[in-house]
Design a protein around this nucleic acid. Structure first.
Lengths: 142, 142
DNA sequence: CCTTGCCTTGACGCCGACGTCAAGGCTTAC
DNA sequence: GTAAGCCTTGACGTCGGCGTCAAGGCAAGG
């Protein structure tokens, strides 16, 4: 099949396929007139890349999977290098999720504080004296 | 104070401050020789921006906080527009965290599947008999 | 023959938040 | 006077993953 069909079947664009080729992730045979041709194995490879991309892997991280498939393995993750990428990605995800939860907690705190400050503005103004009763909600949302 | 000192006190660079100014987030008086000058309120404003940036807010999202401070409010989040940004960010974070957890689960699954496939492979190889039982486990695409 | 619809390579555009270099001016210290 | 260390504006570079032209070639149908 030619590039347009492959792109359509993989749910992407020809531009993307040429880009992958430029990055050395996808290769193509050529017909007499210079057109790229692909077969089912290329589609499989492409789908592997797209799946990983959907998971948030960047292109370079898909390379081991691609090479694994090219080496004749049944799946892109049939090779140790691919498993390593999985593991690294899991660590990254855990770290990122942790950071995001910490940020979420802080932003939640800020919101609560700011809201109670607004609510408490009248109360504070009415009750002078004590040091800022600034909302001790240590509560974690979620 | 001049731009270098402000940058140092805020833990950032002069380039960043000029960039903020170009984006209309930070303003500066000028001395006779054209140098920018800042005061403590500018530092406060800048720190507000940096804090939000650390939380992952993009620059545009800090604008309401900046305008709130400029309007004379004691805190950048003393204004409704800022609270709205907080709420939007909380929603975004929740959504993002949810997606990441879903991805984490899927990647974890893939890893487990691939690892057990490898284990199975070894077992198959160790077992004398069939010639090349190359992995019929898991989901075949297509 | 002409249009339509594929395909080719090449190259610039985009986004965000700056980094980095260029070329030059002011001030202060020695 | 001259070097050091600030400052100025302007402009191009970075990173990823493509989008979007531009200019042209090839194949098939009417």
């Amino acid at each position: 099949m030619r590039i347009g069909e492959l792109a359509a079947r993989a749910g992407t664009t020809t531009r993307t396929l040429r880009y992958y080729e430029s990055r050395g992730l996808l290769s193509a045979r050529r017909t007499g007139n210079g057109y790229r041709t692909y077969d089912e194995s290329d589609l499989k490879l492409l789908r592997q890349i797209r799946t990983l991309q959907d998971f948030g892997f960047d292109l370079e991280e898909t390379r081991p999977f691609v090479e694994c498939l090219r080496a004749g393995h049944p799946e892109g993750d049939s090779c140790p290098a691919s498993l390593q990428v999985y593991r690294r990605k899991l660590d990254e995800l855990d770290a990122l999720i942790g950071e995001l939860r910490a940020v979420r907690a802080k932003v939640g705190e800020q919101l609560a504080r700011a809201e109670s400050a607004r609510d408490g503005l009248a109360a504070d103004a009415a009750a002078p004296g004590g040091p800022e009763p600034v909302c001790e909600l240590g509560g974690e949302p979620r």
